[in-house]
Structure formats: C-alpha cells, structure tokens
Amino acid sequence: MKIIASDKQPAWIVYRALVGVGLVCALMIVSVFLLTLSAIEKNRSEALAQAIFTVLPGANTKLAFALTGGEHFVVADANTDASDAEAVIHAGYGAHGQLIGVAIEAQGMGYQDTIRILYGYIPDRQVIAGMQVLESKETPGLGSKIETDKSFLKNFSQLDVSLTAEGSAIKNAIVAVKPGQKTEPWEIDGITGATISSKAVAGILRASTRRWIPLVQRHLQVFHAAGEAHSDS
C-alpha cells in the first residue's frame, strides 16, 4: 500500500507519473498502429474488391473513378480526394481488360437506419447484375433478409434499367412489388415480412440509378479506354 502516501507529494512525482505513462502509452499505440496498418488496409481493399467482384460477375480487376465537377470521370488514385464516397465508382474489368461493368455505391433510409448498398451495372445489356448490402441495421430475421434472402437477391441478377432512346433518363423506374408478383424486368419481388426494407432497397436503387446510369452511359468511352490502358501497362 505504498501508493497511499501523504498528500504532500512533490510535484515532480506527479509529473513523472503522468508524462511517463503518457509516453509509454503513446509509444505503444503508435507502434501497434504501424504494425497493423498494412494488414488493415489489405483487409479493407479485399472487402471492397470482393464486394465489387460479387456484383459484377466475371470481373477480376477494378479501377476507381472519381466524378469531378459533376460531369467528368477520372481514374482515382491515392492522390484523388475521395472524401465524398458517393462520388467514387468502381469499374470492373475482365481478364483481357475489357469493361464488364461499373459498381456504384448508394445509400438511403431503411426501416431502422441507413442502408448502404453496392450494385453492379452492365452497360452492354443495360441491366443491374448484382447487389450487395454493405451495411444495414435492419431487424434481424426480418429486414435483415435483404442481405441473405436468396430469392430476393436473385431479383438483382437481371434487373432492367434500360435508358430511353436519347439516353438521358431511365425508361422504367425500379419498383418493388408484392412477393411473387414480379411480371416486368424492372420490378423487384419483395420479401414477406420485410416489406419496408425491401421497398427501401428498391427506393435507394431507383434514386441512385436515375442519377448515375445516364451519366455512366454517356462517358462509357472513359471506362473502356482506362481498362485498355490498364491492361497494356
């Protein structure tokens, strides 16, 4: 019980304790941070790559593009300011550098909290070829089915988002219908017991496709060219 000494400790003992412990702690944090940095970054990029390749079947390399000035896509690298996550999209390329499609991140309000999703758009066929929920806090066992329900996820393997003739808007907006009542290629079969969550996903997709698909379609050349350049190098 030596620590309970008299109240009249010399000041330097107090400073010694605080500064000393502070230094030890700071050293520890910095060293662990440096040691784990590479592993954490690898995990992060692997998770992203895995999600992108899931929503873009056939792709095995990817490039990030940033939207600058609201109109032009440039290849994003470490120097590009990617603080606005919604302004970065990823293009996926096949084995020979041919463009497979673009993966776009979108988010919106679900039943409990914001849902973040990633979907893959295939320009050749003008369809969505895959969707993955990146983050959601929907009710476990009900709303959370948007992440796991196989028949729901199948909706997104061939979801029509074809553009109008002049290419400025989507012909048929994506809508969620009651389970089992899908008749048109742009409809999404809802989930029993998760009406709100499945409608929320449809709503997020509707809003995001309205903004991005015409834009991507207009600048397809940029994505193609970047892929060829990438595979050559």
């Binding site: 030596k2 620590i3 309970i4 000494a5 109240d7 400790q9 003992i13 107090v14 010694r16 304790a17 605080l18 000393g20 412990v21 502070g22 702690c25 520890m28 944090i29 662990v32 941070f33 784990t36 592993a39 954490i40 995990n43």
Partner: peptide, 29 residues
Amino acid sequence: HYIPPQVRIATFILIIATFVTVVDYLIQA
C-alpha cells in the same frame, strides 16, 4: 509504486484507453 494517488484514476484510464486502442487495431487487422 510510481503512481501518486492524486492522479491514479487519470493514469489508469490512460493505460486502459491505450490497450483498448491496441485491441481495436488488432481486431481490425
């Protein structure tokens, strides 16, 4: 033996917070 009682809580919290940060990085890795 080196921690005076006046600042013991602050020191303990500092130590605990350090290890929590370490664990946070480790789990992320």
